[in-house]
């Protein structure tokens, strides 16, 4: 019994962490460019919906997945247009986009299928495959946790590593970090700040889109309204815990995944579901506050130490 509980819990942690990791990576690339990504929420929502629609239409999970990425990217580009080209306030623009996406996805679903909250009946969408890892699946407990996850769960790890290499080792990654740290310095050596922002928003969009695809083509197998439910914000929180480092953001997302899994597990007990569902959000606030305290404390200490 106990072993089974541990395996199923561990399995759930990884499963539930997956969308959070993508959201965190989406926020991380923006954070590295000095941007505050509150719109991972929208990117995921569009990714989830478009993934379902396209995979249903083409009978190909892969094409659906690619479409989800594209949908996320377009969302990111829209934010870029509004804030860089239109000089709209970044916060206000993202709030607006989140608002429009929440309604827009429902509306698009309806326009195509006549359904208003769930695509399950109307669209025969495909799920992304689960993967058994030959060697590992044989190991007791650990194998059961690590193997048999959705391909995107492994994809999340790969994405974090690739993003980390991209940010820290590639030329473009250098430029993104330069802009994030000091746009004037970057500009003074000929790096175009708007271009870097465009790139950051697009990559963030792609990552968000993948996270969304996992939600509707892995975690569930259909789109339901507002299914992202604040995961974008939780990812943002995870990323800011580690200053936007991709690997760190992934690990922090795991913490929130644990909170999610605990809350899922408790739902099976007699505990009131609503109070249990609250947990990940409370954890987010507490972590965010603690983190800001630490960060701020460090900054003031630094100034003091220098003097």
């Amino acid at each position: 019994m106990n072993v089974r509980l541990i395996t199923s819990f561990g399995f759930a942690v990884l499963r539930l962490s997956t969308p959070l990791v993508f959201a965190a990576l989406s926020a991380a690339i923006c954070e590295k460019a000095g941007l505050f990504n509150m719109a991972a929420e929208s990117m995921m929502l569009w990714g989830a919906l478009i993934g379902v629609i396209v995979s249903g239409a083409t009978h190909s999970a892969l094409i659906g997945f690619l479409a989800a990425m594209a949908a996320g990217a377009v969302t990111g580009m829209l934010i870029w247009v509004a804030t860089v080209k239109g000089k709209a306030d970044l916060m206000l623009a993202q709030i607006a986009i989140n608002l429009a996406s929440s309604g827009g996805t429902i509306f698009l679903l309806f326009a195509l299928t006549g359904e208003k909250s769930n695509s399950a009946v109307a669209i025969k969408s495909l799920a992304l495959p689960k993967i058994n890892i030959p060697g590992i699946s044989a190991i007791p407990v650990v194998g059961k946790i690590l193997s048999g996850q959705n391909i995107l769960t492994y994809g999340a790890v790969v994405a974090a590593i690739v993003l980390s290499i991209f940010v820290f080792k590639s030329k473009t990654g250098h430029h993104i970090r330069a802009v994030g740290e000091n746009p004037h310095a970057a500009e003074s050596v000929g790096i175009s700040v708007p271009k870097v922002y465009f790139l950051a928003w697009t990559i963030a969009g792609v990552l968000g889109g993948i996270g969304g695809a996992f939600m509707s083509m892995g975690y569930l197998t259909s789109f339901t309204k507002d299914m992202v439910a604040g995961r974008g914000y939780i990812g943002l929180c995870a990323s800011s815990m580690v200053g936007g480092s991709p690997i760190g953001a992934m690990l922090c997302a795991l913490i929130f995944g644990v909170a999610d899994a605990v809350s899922n597990q408790l739902q099976l007990t007699n505990a009131p579901a609503d109070l249990v569902l609250m947990m990940p959000y409370i954890v987010t606030i507490v972590v965010l506050v603690l983190l800001s305290v630490v960060k701020h404390g460090r900054a003031t200490r630094k100034v003091k130490a220098k003097s």
Partner: peptide
């Protein structure tokens, strides 16, 4: 400039070569 245009978190080499980084295999040749 009087106010430095530098990136404190990066190395001297990264600052100096910013925008004109040498490349190898698609990545920056550190």
């Amino acid at each position: 400039h009087q106010h430095f245009m530098l990136l404190p978190s990066m190395t001297v080499a990264q600052n100096v070569t910013l925008g004109m980084e040498p490349k190898k295999n698609g990545l920056v040749d550190a």
